[in-house]
Amino acid sequence: MAGLEDLYREIILDHYRTPRNRGELEAPAVSAEGHNPLCGDEIRIFIDVKDGLVSDVRFNGSGCSISQSSASMMTTAVKGKPVEQVRAIVKRFKQMMTIDEDENSSIDESINLGDLEALQGVVKFPVRIKCATLGWNTLLDALVESDK
């Protein structure tokens, strides 16, 4: 059986206790809201896209340690990166979470998930995968908003 230490890695708890990029962004930044209807978790992701770069990103909302720390780690991973690279990171992360919908896609080994690898242990607790991916799916919704 997977132990709690697989789930609650120190880096995850650190992001939970001290979230990075927590807050909101004013317009022209856009935002999207995500819900986990199962547990009531809510998250809002704000992004500012300038010249093809995600120049700034913030999140707020409430939820469990996994949803909040994953969102915090996501913001540090995508801030300042080109939109195309952000999409690639999201895809790579979802592959790690075993929920990439495109079964034929190959894993892009050039993307280093760094600290995000700590969330790998979540896969051993299938009901928590939705917690870990809530912020990421909401980021994709925010990217759609920014395209409008």
């Binding site: 547990c39 978790d41 469990c64 340690s65 607790f125 928590r128 917690c131």
Partner: peptide
């Protein structure tokens, strides 16, 4: 958080 708490109780 209740989700975290229930996960620990499940141990």
């Amino acid at each position: 958080h209740p989700h975290d708490l229930s996960q620990v109780l499940d141990q």
